[in-house]
Design a protein around this nucleic acid. Structure first.
Lengths: 335, 335
DNA sequence: GCGCTTATAGCAAACGTTTGCTCATAACTA
DNA sequence: TAGTTATGAGCAAACGTTTGCTATAAGCGC
């Protein structure tokens, strides 16, 4: 039904090889045949079959992108960044949304292998990937973003410097005079969550503020748990500021604050995480550590392409993006 | 380097065909050879080559999903819905983010054709697709979501009933006693924007409220234009309520309201669009018409799969999802 | 004219599967 | 016992390209 390169060849009394060469513009052919072929291509509405080409070339120009939840603005922005550089370089995205399900993630990795993608970018929800996992043993280049499982350096990654992010949050609050600082942290089995907390503690330590374990709540990054944590803190008392390590937990926490009849920042100062809120629809504006989302996407895509072009290069790159703080109105200066 | 079906066949003194049949579990083979093959598969770490399989079967199990901006929560949610049903049915997503660029969209369509995707779901930014466009003339099933270009019924689509949405907004405001109603509308060359406005006008008409063209501002769905429109309206005066037809324009408009020192809903009542805000971080909460985002995703995926299974079926399906209104605190009852 | 280079284009293998057909053998059926 | 059916497995074509190698003819220097 559909015309292929051979159909055209037959029609023009040429061999498939010449037609192929004309279409791809490589090799030698006369201007005359070039024109004949191109005309036929147009007239017969020929559409190259990438599948066949990919089989031949052992290159699919497809990149698997595995993320937990495309609905989180962070990941959406990352993907946007990825797409931008990928499409420019002729690569395309095979999208895998895992719904934060480790099992689905594993299956998607298998699928990507079967589909012979040229590379993989993965924001994993697995906290420890077995060293005999296909990811580590297959020969498809891959980059971890956001969360890096496992210790050691045997992989490439692009992440925010979460340790620094946590430290910056502590430093900031301290610089505003706070010393009784609570924290609502994400999962500690993920590097994203753990490093933020470690950095936070480091910030306290460097400023000679002693730890108060009772003020640190560990949640799952989601709204509901942030709300619950804040409720507990409000009941406990004994703090003037809170570092909340994800945007969703901030939303949940704000809800708890409102329900308790308290006011930010008069009663409680808050420094959040990933609160972009470009048009300040939240009031008071929440001062927040933010990650450079699309930079993470772009950098990971660039790094991956480098790895693909240069497969023998066994060097491991681990890129850390510096976070920023956006000052808004949620932290009271009590100096 | 990598083992294929033939490598295994050779190793076991079998023919590729039997190996293939064992792996796919179709055809006849003895339990003995089944075991031999399966063992070899495991031991040699055989990974099927989907590309080869796809070439042979003329089926890629790939669905092209074209959207303007994955960063908009609406599209992210739609995609999530799509992924859910697609992955369950063994299909995968070839993601195309067009950045609202019609040209890029066109190129992506070509690319999808070259890649022989089994189907396409497209939220187009093109307001009129030529009738000789490949989409309409190729033989790949496709579904429009969100925005449907062209008149007529020669395509499948899944969209919110935007006319109804606009009408519901008008009806709601009127039911609260408002009669001087402004509107900040999106692009009128897209059905999404136009139908919302038409429905809105219909609502006025049915309630015998005469039109006041000066109160209707036409924007581009984005924050900045929403802000500007609201500034104009505030300057003009002469209204008690506004219908704002996109979430981003609501954010922009709120900004303008705040800057003008006015208060919602005391000075201005607002009914927005697509304001999900599950945890009410915006205050006052914005009453809003909302679309069932993931339902749109799921339904479009289901419909597409149906079309793929049933290519001869030349029936066109146009599904309209009923919007909902979420009542919050941004509309004052002045009855 | 002779050898040599260069420009064109064809041949055929390869990429890794799937599948219709054939074939041999074993197992029934009457 | 002959004829039919079921079972297990191989052959080879096909899917639509790309590409290394080869063949032919023309162009050129001498």
């Amino acid at each position: 039904m559909r015309v292929g390169i051979t159909t055209i060849a037959k029609m023009l009394n040429l061999s498939p090889s010449t037609v192929s060469r004309v279409i791809n513009g490589k090799g030698n052919f006369s201007e005359e045949t070039r024109k004949k072929v191109m005309d036929a291509v147009k007239e017969m509405n020929y559409i190259p079959n990438s599948i066949a080409r990919k089989l031949q070339q052992k290159e699919t120009k497809l990149i698997g992108v595995i993320i937990p939840d495309i609905t989180e603005t962070f990941f959406a922005s990352v993907i946007k960044g990825i797409e931008e550089v990928l499409s420019e370089k002729g690569y395309n995205i095979f999208l895998c949304n895992t719904n934060e399900n480790a099992d689905k993630e594993r299956k998607y990795v298998d699928l990507l292998y079967e589909n012979r993608v040229d590379g993989i970018i993965v924001a994993t929800v697995r906290n420890n990937i077995a060293s005999d996992d296909i990811l580590f043993n297959g020969n498809i280049p891959f980059i971890f973003i956001d969360n890096t499982p496992n210790e050691g350096n045997q992989f490439n990654s692009v992440t925010t410097d979460n340790f620094l992010a946590g430290k910056m949050a502590a430093d900031y609050l301290i610089s505003k005079g706070h010393t009784k600082i609570a924290a609502i942290m994400g999962k500690q089995d993920e590097t994203t969550g753990r490093k933020r907390f470690e950095g936070f503690l480091k910030g306290l330590e460097e400023n000679s503020i002693s730890k108060d374990e009772s003020l640190y709540k560990f949640c799952d990054f989601k709204e509901a748990s942030g709300c619950r944590a804040m409720e507990e803190l409000i009941e406990q008392k004994g703090f003037t500021a809170v570092f909340i390590a994800s945007s969703k937990m901030v939303y949940g926490a704000l809800w708890a604050v409102k329900k308790a009849g308290l006011v930010v920042p008069d009663d409680i100062s808050i420094i959040g995480f990933d609160i972009i809120d470009k048009y300040q629809v939240i009031s008071p504006g929440i001062t927040s550590v933010i990650q450079l989302e699309d930079e993470i996407g772009k950098s990971s895509a660039k790094l991956l392409i480098e790895k693909i072009k240069n497969k023998e290069d066994k060097l491991y790159h681990q890129l850390y993006m510096e976070p920023k703080i956006i000052e808004r109105e949620s932290v009271k200066n009590i100096m």
